[in-house]
C-alpha cells in the first residue's frame, strides 16, 4: 500500500506536487501530460528527492526508510551505481537480490546481449528496457516504473506490459500514452494534472468515459485543467477519453 498524506514536492523553490493525499493499493497507472509532475512524484516515492508531508510505502515512511528491499524503480537517476550493464547486474545481485540469470534472459528477449556496454551509451529505448528489466527482475513487492514504454518498439512494448503484469504485487506505472495503458484496463488509475492527483478510478472505466466541460452530476471523476473544470462521464456525449491517445491533448479540448 502506498499512502500519500499532504505530500508536497518542491523543485527549485516551486511546488511541483501540490498538497496531495491518496491511498494506492495494487498496481496503479499514473497518467498525466508532459510536465504534470508524474516523474517528480515517482522520484519522491522512490526516495530520490525530498518531500514534505508523508509518503508511506507498506507502512514505511520513504524519507526514513533504510535497507527495505521490497521496492524497485526504473528511474534513470537510480542507475548510476555500476558503469556497464554487467556491472549493474553484478552489484544489484548483491544489494538488490537481483536474479541475474532472469535479468540476462529478459534482456536477451528484447535483443540486448552486449552487456559490456556502458549504461549511458544505450539508446533511449534500450536504456528504458534495461532499467525496467532490472527493476522487475529484482522481484520486488512494489514497482515504481517511470514511462516504461517510452521510445520502446511496438512489439517490445507488449512484452514489457506482460512483464509488468507478471512482476510485483503493487506499484505505480507512469505513462502519458493511452494506447499502451489500455493493456492495464483492470488496474486502478490516477490522473495528475498541474501537480494535483485525481482519482482513483478503474482504468477501463476511465478510458471508456467521455469528457465534458463543467461539473456534471454522477461523473466518475472531476478534474481542473488550465483553470477549467471537466467531468469524466460513463457513456456521455463528449469526446471519449481513450481517443485522446496522448494525455497532453487534454489541454486542446
Amino acid at each position: 500500500m502506498i499512502e500519500l498524506k499532504d505530500a508536497v514536492v518542491e523543485l527549485g523553490g516551486k511546488e511541483i506536487i501540490k498538497q496531495t493525499s491518496t491511498r494506492i493499493s495494487g498496481k496503479t497507472v499514473l497518467l498525466g501530460p508532459n510536465g504534470s509532475g508524474k516523474t517528480t512524484l515517482l522520484r519522491a516515492m522512490a526516495g530520490v528527492i525530498p518531500y514534505r508531508g508523508s509518503i508511506m510505502i507498506n507502512g514505511i515512511e520513504v524519507k526514513r526508510a533504510r535497507n527495505v528491499n521490497a521496492i524497485s524503480t526504473n528511474l534513470p537517476e537510480a542507475f548510476v551505481l555500476g558503469l556497464t550493464m554487467e556491472d549493474v547486474i553484478y552489484l544489484y545481485e548483491e544489494i538488490k537480490q537481483l536474479d541475474g540469470e532472469k535479468a540476462r534472459e529478459m534482456l536477451r528477449e528484447v535483443g540486448i546481449t552486449d552487456l559490456k556496454k556502458k549504461v549511458y551509451e544505450l539508446s533511449a529505448g534500450q536504456g528504458v528496457l534495461f532499467r525496467t528489466i532490472i527493476a522487475l527482475s529484482s522481484e520486488p513487492e512494489v514497482i515504481l516504473l517511470d514511462e516504461p514504454f517510452e521510445n520502446v518498439d511496438a512489439a517490445k512494448r507488449y512484452k514489457v506490459a506482460n512483464w509488468i503484469k507478471e512482476f510485483g504485487k503493487e506499484g505505480v506505472i507512469v505513462t502519458h500514452e493511452l494506447d499502451i495503458a489500455k493493456t492495464f484496463k483492470s488496474y486502478d488509475s490516477l490522473i495528475i494534472l498541474e501537480g494535483r492527483l485525481h482519482g482513483l478510478v478503474n482504468l477501463g472505466e476511465l478510458l471508456d468515459s467521455t469528457i465534458e466541460e463543467g461539473e456534471v452530476p454522477g461523473a466518475i471523476l472531476y478534474m481542473n485543467v488550465g483553470g477549467r473544470k471537466f467531468s469524466l462521464i460513463k457513456q456521455g456525449k463528449g469526446k471519449k477519453f481513450e481517443d485522446l491517445i496522448l494525455l497532453d491533448r487534454i489541454y486542446n479540448i
Binding site: 526508510a65 537510480a78 537480490q97
Partner: peptide, 9 residues
C-alpha cells in the same frame, strides 16, 4: 538516495 533506502546497501 534510492539504494540506501531500498536495498541492502
Amino acid at each position: 538516495s534510492h539504494l540506501l533506502r531500498f536495498s541492502k546497501l
